[in-house]
Each structure stands twice: as C-alpha cells, then as structure tokens.
Simulated scan of single mutants.
Amino acid sequence: MKHTGFAAAHAGMLLWAVLIAASFSAAAQVSQAIDPILLTGLRLLFCALAFLPLLLFKGDSVMTARGLFGHCVLGLLLAVYFGSLFEALRYTSAVNTGTMFTLVPLLTLGFEAMLMPDSHFKQRLWPMLIAASGAALLVMKGTGPGELPSPYALSVYGVGCLAMALYSPLSQRLKTRSLKGRGPVAMTFWNMLFGALFLLTFCGFSGGWRSTSLLTTTDVYWLMYLALFATLATFWLLHRAIGVIAPSSVIAYIYLSTLFITLFHWLWGRQSPLPLETLGAVMVGAGMLALLRSSRRTTPVSAGR
C-alpha cells in the first residue's frame, strides 16, 4: 500500500472522529418520544437508499449467495449492537455505557488476533491500553458515588460491545473470502440494509413502529442529517480505512472522538477542564500517537477497493 493510501485512510478516520463527536448534539435534537430502535433502523435504511444509485452506477450490485450471507451477518452485528445499547440505556446511564464502550477497541484487537493472526498484536496493545484509560477518565465525568450500573444492563450491552468489536475484523476477514473485491460503497450499502431490516423487523414485533406518528418535520430533518453525516459518511470512511489500517487501529479512533467531545464542552460550553479530564486528554493523545506510529510500521492486508 502506498504512503498516500495510508495517509488518506488516517485523514478519513480523523474526519470520522469529528463526525461522530458532532453527532451527539444532533441526535439530541430528535424527539425523545420516538422509539430509538425505530429511529436507528430508519437511519440505516436512509443510508442504504442514499448509496443505492452510486452502487448501481459502479455496477457493484451483483451478489453471490455466500456474499449475501456475509453481509447478513455483518448487518446482524450492527443490529445487535444498537439494540443492546438502547435496551441498556433503559436501566443505566449514558456515562456507564460510554465507559464500557471504551473496551470495544481492546476487544477488537482480541478478535483481530484470532481472525488475522498476522497482525502485530503486541505493537498496538500498550498504546491502546493508554488511550482506553484516558478515554475512561474523560467519559466518567459526572458519575455519582452511588451510581452503580445494573448487572442486567452490563450483560446486555456487553453482548453489544462484543458484536461491535467483531464487526471490523470480520469485515476484513470476509473481504479476503466471500466478500473479496467489495468496495466501501457496496460494503456500506449491504451492511446498512441488513442492519435496518433486522431493527425494523424487531420494531414490528415490539410495537415500536407505532411511534412513527410522532415524527415531525424537524425530526425528519435531523434524522436525514444523522443518516447522511453521522451514519452513512462514517461507515463509508470506516470501510475505506479497513484493509489499509489494522481493524483495531481503525476502531481506536473512538478514543479520539471521545477527546473531541470533551474539547467541544471545554470550548463551546465554557467549562474548565478538571484535573482528571486533562490527564485523560493527554493519555488519549499519547496513546493515539503511539498507535499511529505502530500502524505505520505494520504492513496492511490488501482489500478490494
């Protein structure tokens, strides 16, 4: 892989981290009365439909049975993650789920070691531990002394975190087998489509579809924004980077997104940094810098573009 490909992949993931950080403010604008799983299913469906013309134009819509099954599995992982997140949030706070989410890149590294044994596990372990610890310090702000997470919520969201951790390494593994030659557009379209179908089917059984009547024009506007920028663009950038950068290094940009969210609060919220937040920010920066250097020394597995 040429240096320009490597640099472009990291630049894309830097934009990914910014888009993810900005998405939280946009998501807060949507009515809380609408079923969140329904909203996520609609977001994924809008993303798939937005990519459909480009998919047809590129002539990348032909699919084998094995390829269809691979996309189905990846879409199911997305549905399991989002479903578990919203279920867990009924019993615990966003702070607790945010703290658990910092484990996802570490879990991704473990799946990567199993599915891609050629990856340089030890080179990325310590930088990721440093970044994960720093991110945990950032997201634990505001946790009360008696605010203990529900064991049920931890169990449910733990399954979701495992699903999200498996997503990137499995995508890379399938790109060398049943999904060989699939580019970022096709990967994003089919995975989003299956994820949307699983979530909307769940809403059909749970009754969450009834909250569709509560959607306003403003909600639809923000939903389209989230679909285009917080979901479609970020997953395209994710699949664009997978194969150029190790999956664990790709998903580690979550930590940088956490840092950006904190910086937004400092700058626009005019909040003074707490000592632990400052330490966390430094640790995230140091860990990501070390991770960047280690990923540059790693020879990436080529993937279909």
Score class of each variant (00 low, 15 high):
Thr258Ala: 01
Thr298Cys: 05
Leu263Thr: 02
Ala303Ser: 10
Ala28Leu: 04
Trp266Ile: 06
Phe198Gln: 01
Gly59Thr: 08
Thr278Tyr: 01
Thr64Phe: 12
Ala48Gln: 11
Glu147Gly: 10
Ser31Lys: 14
Val30Gly: 06
Ala241Thr: 02
Trp190Val: 08
Met187Arg: 13
Pro273Gly: 12
Glu277Thr: 02
Gly207Thr: 11
Leu214Trp: 08
Met187Lys: 04
Phe69Lys: 13
Arg240Trp: 09
Pro149His: 02
Thr40Asn: 13
Arg293Leu: 15
Phe198Thr: 06
Ser294Ala: 11
Leu39Arg: 08
Ile37Gly: 06
Ser31Trp: 14
Leu200Ile: 12
Trp268Glu: 04
Ser155Met: 10
His265Arg: 08
Met100Ala: 12
Gly269Val: 07
Ser295Thr: 14
Leu55Tyr: 13
Met100His: 11
Ser272Met: 13
Asp35Cys: 04
Ser25Trp: 13
Pro300Tyr: 02
Met116Leu: 08
Val62Trp: 09
Ile34Val: 15
Arg90Thr: 03
Thr99Tyr: 05
Ser171Phe: 03
Ala50Lys: 09
Thr278Pro: 10
Pro36Lys: 03
Thr92Glu: 06
Ser25Pro: 07
Val62Leu: 11
Pro300Thr: 09
Phe205Gly: 04
Ala246Trp: 06
Met63Tyr: 13
Ala113Pro: 08
Thr278Ala: 05
Leu55Thr: 06
His239Lys: 07
Ala113Ser: 08
Leu39Gln: 14
Val220Phe: 09
Gly67Leu: 04
Leu263Pro: 00
Thr299Cys: 02
Ala17Thr: 01
Lys122Asn: 06
Tyr221Val: 12
Gly181Asn: 10
Ser249His: 08
Cys47Asp: 14
Gly146His: 15
Ala94Pro: 14
Leu125Ala: 07
Ile245Phe: 08
Gln32Gly: 07
Ala11Val: 05
Ser150Leu: 13
Leu289Gly: 03
Phe86Ser: 05
Ala7Glu: 15
Leu14Trp: 01
Gly110Asn: 10
Pro247Glu: 03
Gly98His: 10
Ala33His: 13
Ala65Asn: 03
Leu259Pro: 01
Ser302Trp: 07
Leu259Asp: 00
Gly208Arg: 01
Leu214Met: 12
Leu109Pro: 03
Thr212Val: 06
Tyr167Glu: 04
Lys2Arg: 15
Ile254Val: 12
Leu148Glu: 02
Ser31Asp: 15
Ser206Lys: 02
Phe111Asp: 04
Leu45Cys: 14
Leu56Val: 09
Leu166Ile: 04
Trp16Gly: 00
Leu68Asn: 13
Gly304Asp: 03
Phe260Ala: 05
Leu289Trp: 10
Leu125Asp: 01
Ser257Asn: 01
Ser84Thr: 12
Ala252Cys: 05
Leu52Ala: 14
Asp118Gly: 15
Ile245Met: 12
Gln29Trp: 15
Ala33Gln: 12
Ala246Arg: 08
Tyr167Lys: 07
Gly195Pro: 14
Pro300Ala: 08
Leu44Ala: 15
Thr299Pro: 07
Met13Trp: 09
Leu226Ser: 04
Leu44Pro: 14
Leu276Ala: 06
Arg90Pro: 06
Leu238His: 06
Ala33Met: 07
His71Thr: 15
Tyr253Cys: 00
Asn191Glu: 03
